[in-house]
């Protein structure tokens, strides 16, 4: 259960968002600049809300009133950035196992094999990030986040920089992750088709404000086709 109730100001944008979700995939849907990425950063601990609280499974990640603010490294929240952010001086294998090594999890076990297979990473392990395509980079970034053993996975428009063919390929991988690795996902998107295909719940965010929240089936007719 992810429980968000925050107010925050970034630049000229006044944000006010409150919802709780226990959906397997919750989509944050809205235009660029609506504050979706900022919300992810607040959940991940890369920024601190000016007021309010965020809790995960009953544990406060940040609570301004109680002066709680867990640093991002202690939140165990995986983050797949829009621009992958792979470490350029490490091999794909070293990138993938970075968080797992820090978490003290086994580096060779069934879970590692499973995620390598699920994301089709086997052929990439010895390469450097400079030699990966955009789609491959996102698969590695997704694998890296999953292998650290997170409690929650954040994804910031992981398909945004890909062409349609790559999008379809990664979408299939995302579905496999959703169905086989059972950790809740918060997924930022401004494409209705992605939301329909992946999300169980949708939070509609407009100009920093939460304007609708509900199950995808119920909310989908109200969503614009694309808000890019």
């Amino acid at each position: 259960m992810l429980d968000i109730d925050i107010r925050h100001r970034i630049g000229a944008l006044d944000m006010s968002v409150a919802f709780r979700t226990d959906g397997p995939v919750t989509a944050l849907f809205g235009r660029s600049g609506a504050g979706k990425t900022t919300l992810l950063n607040l959940i991940a601990g890369l920024a601190r809300p000016e007021a309010g609280r965020i809790a995960l499974d009953g544990e406060a990640l940040v609570d301004r009133e109680k002066r709680i603010a867990l640093p991002s490294r202690k939140r165990r929240i995986g983050y797949v950035f829009q621009d992958a952010r792979l470490f350029p001086h490490l091999t794909v294998r070293q990138n993938l196992l970075f968080g797992r090594w820090l978490a003290g999890l086994p580096l060779r076990d069934a879970q590692v094999e499973r995620i390598f297979a699920l994301l089709d990473l086997g052929g990439l392990l010895a390469r450097r990030p400079a030699h990966l395509s955009g789609g491959e980079k996102q698969r590695v970034a997704l694998g890296r986040a999953l292998l650290a053993g997170p409690r929650l996975l954040l994804m910031d428009e992981p398909l945004a920089s890909l062409d349609d063919e790559r999008k379809a390929e990664i979408l299939a991988h995302l579905e496999a992750v959703r169905d086989e690795i059972r950790i809740p996902i918060v997924y930022v998107s401004h494409a209705r088709s992605e939301v329909r295909r992946l999300a169980s719940h949708v939070a509609l965010i407009e100009k920093g404000q939460l304007t609708a929240f509900g199950e995808t089936q119920a909310l989908l007719p109200r969503l614009p086709e694309s808000v890019a």
Partner: peptide, 8 residues
């Protein structure tokens, strides 16, 4: 930042 989210 990415390293931070991975626990470093």
């Amino acid at each position: 930042q990415a390293a931070g989210t991975l626990g470093a």
